[in-house]
C-alpha cells in the first residue's frame, strides 16, 4: 500500500541524511522525497512517498518520530488532503506532431516554458494520475527528457502546527 507521509523536521544540516539513512538502514522503500523550508525558516517539511503493509508503515511512522530532529509525522492517508507534483517534460516531436503537442499541453493546463527548433519543454502540475496521463500521451511523440519534483501534499483543513 502506498502512503504519502509529511514530516516536519528541524531545519539543520544532516537531517535529510538521518531520514534517508533510516529508510535505507531498515530496508524501507522511498518512492519519492521532497524537502523545503516552511514559513518558519527553522523548520523544514519533507514529503515522503513510501510503500509497505500496515506493519511496515506503522514502524516507519514510529521510527521517524523517534528521530531527534523530527517534530511531527503525518500519514496523509488518514487525512483529506491535496497532492501535487510538478514535472518538466522536454518533447522532440516530428514536425507534423508539433501542433498536437501544444494542444495536449493546453488540455493538461501545462505551460510551454522553453522551446527550441526541435523541442518544447512543458511544465505540468497535477496529481499522480494527471502526470501519468500526459506522459502516456506524449510518449509516442518522443519524450527526450523528463524531470519530476516528487510529490508534495497538504491536508485540506491545514496541518495543525506542531
Amino acid at each position: 500500500m502506498r502512503h504519502t507521509i509529511s514530516v516536519l523536521v528541524e531545519n539543520k544540516f544532516g537531517v535529510l541524511s538521518r531520514v534517508s539513512g533510516l529508510f535505507s538502514g531498515r530496508g524501507y522503500n522511498i518512492e519519492s522525497l521532497s524537502v523545503g523550508e516552511t514559513i518558519d525558516p527553522q523548520i523544514s517539511i519533507m514529503t515522503i512517498v513510501t510503500s509497505g503493509d500496515d506493519w511496515v508503515i506503522e514502524q516507519i511512522d514510529k521510527q521517524l518520530n523517534k528521530l531527534i530532529d523530527v517534530i511531527k509525522v503525518v500519514d496523509m492517508k488518514e487525512l483529506d488532503h491535496v497532492e501535487r507534483e510538478m514535472v518538466l517534460i522536454k518533447v522532440a516531436p516530428r514536425a507534423e506532431d508539433k501542433a498536437e503537442v501544444l494542444r495536449i499541453a493546453e488540455i493538461f493546463r501545462g505551460r510551454i516554458v522553453d522551446s527550441s527548433q526541435k523541442t518544447y519543454t512543458i511544465e505540468v502540475t497535477g496529481d499522480e494520475k494527471k502526470i501519468a496521463a500526459i506522459v502516456d500521451i506524449l510518449k509516442p511523440m518522443g519524450i527526450k527528457e523528463f524531470v519530476r519534483t516528487g510529490k508534495i501534499a497538504i491536508a485540506r483543513e491545514g496541518l495543525k502546527k506542531y
Partner: peptide
C-alpha cells in the same frame, strides 16, 4: 518506553 519496540 520506545514505541518502535512495540509491534516491531
Amino acid at each position: 518506553i520506545d514505541p518502535t519496540s512495540i509491534r516491531k
